[in-house]
């Protein structure tokens, strides 16, 4: 693990201090790459837009995934089929499906504006409008809930039946069952999903690369560093962006861990 993960990570940290070009490590550049970041307005925009995406997509994604997991956890006939259906968009992403999205997002004859028209709302520019492009990308992310839904489902399935039996004896309502059994028992999983969704949203790449290539206010850090490294061949600069991205993600994850003590319940520590 140290070899396959640690070495490349340390290497990219070291590279961030070099004027690293295509074939040669180039000159030692000290903190020059970092000072350049300070005056790079495209970097600053990407930083802000990454935070914007995270603030929008994480709550949406976690809530929709949890709701979907609860829905497909119901004991009704055929529910396994629906689990698969909800999971499908997570494995059918990519270029092939992008055409469908382009069609739905088209301002003049797209499906979404047609729908808005039905309910009397004037159409918007979606991914083609600087103000709506990022919300559109966030909306798209609500389709890729499959992985989080599966994790929540596994968590729900892991809650022992007897705990529900215990509160049922006390005549608990549906809400009370959820509030006093499901939520606390699921809290380690909710915590996990929240942390990884934040981490992943800081690394959002594919949807934006395919749909807007970072234009119209959708440039995010992972995409920006990819362009810098693989298109402009400025690997030192790209690595510096990565280090910043790493520090920010790390700080936020640390905060989440610190705050988790207040609401996450661990059975192993003997809660009952």
């Amino acid at each position: 693990m140290v070899l396959f993960w640690g070495v490349p990570i340390i290497a990219s940290f070291v590279i961030s201090f070099f004027d690293w070009k295509l074939l040669s490590p180039g000159e030692f550049a000290g903190v020059e790459n970092y000072t350049k970041l300070g005056t790079d307005r495209r970097f600053k925009a990407a930083l802000w837009q990454t935070i914007y995406y995270t603030l929008g997509s994480v709550p949406l994604n976690v809530l929709v995934a949890l709701a979907a997991a609860i829905l497909v956890n119901q004991k009704v006939r055929g529910v396994t089929l629906f689990r698969t259906l909800f999971y499908l968009p997570s494995v059918t992403a990519g270029v092939a499906i992008s055409i469908l999205w382009y069609w739905m997002f088209n301002p003049d004859f797209g499906l979404f504006n047609w729908f808005l028209g039905l309910i009397g709302v004037p159409g918007i520019g979606w991914i083609w409008d600087r103000n709506w492009a990022m919300p559109s990308i966030i909306l798209m992310s609500a389709w890729s809930i499959g992985a989080n839904m599966v994790i929540f489902l596994a968590g729900l399935q892991g809650i022992p039946e007897h705990l529900y039996d215990a509160v049922d004896v006390d005549g608990a309502t549906r809400y009370q069952r959820f509030r006093h059994v499901t939520l606390p028992m699921l809290s380690p999983v909710i915590f996990f999903v929240s942390v990884i969704t934040v981490v992943q949203s800081f690394q959002i790449f594919t949807n934006i690369y395919v749909m807007t290539r970072g234009e119209r206010g959708t440039m995010v850090l992972a995409l920006y560093l990819f362009f810098k490294g693989f298109e402009d061949l400025k690997m030192g600069y790209a690595s510096a962006i990565a280090v910043i991205l790493f520090v920010i993600t790390g700080v936020i994850a640390l905060l989440q861990f610190r705050l988790s003590g207040a609401w996450v319940y661990y059975e192993e520590e003997g809660g009952q």
């Binding site: 490349p8 990570i9 690394q203 992972a222 690595s239 990565a242 991205l245």
Partner: peptide, 10 residues
């Protein structure tokens, strides 16, 4: 921490 490095970098 290894999760927090975007794969494009390594």
């Amino acid at each position: 921490a290894t999760m927090m490095i975007p794969p494009q970098v390594t």
